[in-house]
Deep mutational scan, measured.
Amino acid sequence: NQASVVANTLIPINTALTLVMMRSEVVTPVGIPAEDIPRLVSMTVNRAVPLGTTLMPDMVKGYA
Rank of each mutant, 00 (worst) to 15 (best):
N1P: 15
N1H: 10
N1S: 14
Q2W: 11
Q2H: 10
Q2S: 12
A3H: 14
A3V: 08
A3R: 05
A3W: 06
A3N: 06
S4I: 02
S4G: 05
V5R: 01
V5I: 14
V6C: 05
A7I: 04
A7N: 01
A7L: 03
N8A: 14
N8L: 07
T9N: 09
T9G: 09
T9W: 11
L10R: 08
I11P: 01
I11W: 01
I11M: 04
P12K: 07
P12C: 07
I13G: 09
I13K: 09
I13R: 08
N14Y: 14
T15L: 05
T15V: 11
T15K: 08
T15G: 05
T15I: 06
A16E: 08
L17V: 04
L17K: 00
L17C: 02
T18E: 06
T18R: 09
L19T: 08
L19K: 06
V20T: 14
V20Y: 14
M21H: 11
M22S: 00
M22G: 00
R23Q: 04
S24D: 07
S24N: 07
S24F: 07
S24W: 08
E25T: 08
E25Q: 12
E25N: 10
V26K: 05
V26I: 12
V26D: 15
V26L: 14
V26A: 11
V27N: 03
T28Q: 08
T28H: 07
T28E: 15
V30L: 12
V30D: 15
G31F: 03
G31N: 01
I32H: 00
P33S: 12
A34N: 05
A34T: 07
A34D: 08
E35V: 12
E35M: 07
E35S: 10
E35P: 09
D36T: 06
D36S: 13
D36L: 12
D36Q: 09
I37N: 00
I37M: 14
I37V: 08
P38H: 10
P38W: 12
P38E: 08
R39P: 01
R39A: 08
R39Q: 07
L40R: 00
L40G: 00
L40D: 00
L40K: 00
L40Q: 00
L40S: 00
L40T: 00
L40F: 01
S42W: 10
S42E: 07
S42F: 13
S42H: 11
M43S: 04
M43T: 04
M43N: 04
T44G: 05
V45S: 09
V45K: 00
N46H: 13
R47E: 06
A48C: 07
A48I: 11
A48T: 15
A48W: 10
A48G: 15
V49L: 11
P50F: 13
P50C: 08
L51M: 14
G52K: 04
T53V: 14
T53W: 12
T53E: 11
T53K: 09
T54Q: 03
L55C: 01
L55M: 13
M56I: 07
M56Q: 15
P57C: 06
P57L: 04
D58S: 12
D58C: 15
D58F: 13
M59K: 02
V60M: 04
V60Q: 01
V60S: 01
K61S: 13
K61D: 15
G62C: 15
G62W: 08
G62H: 08
Y63K: 03
Y63D: 03
A64P: 07
A64I: 12
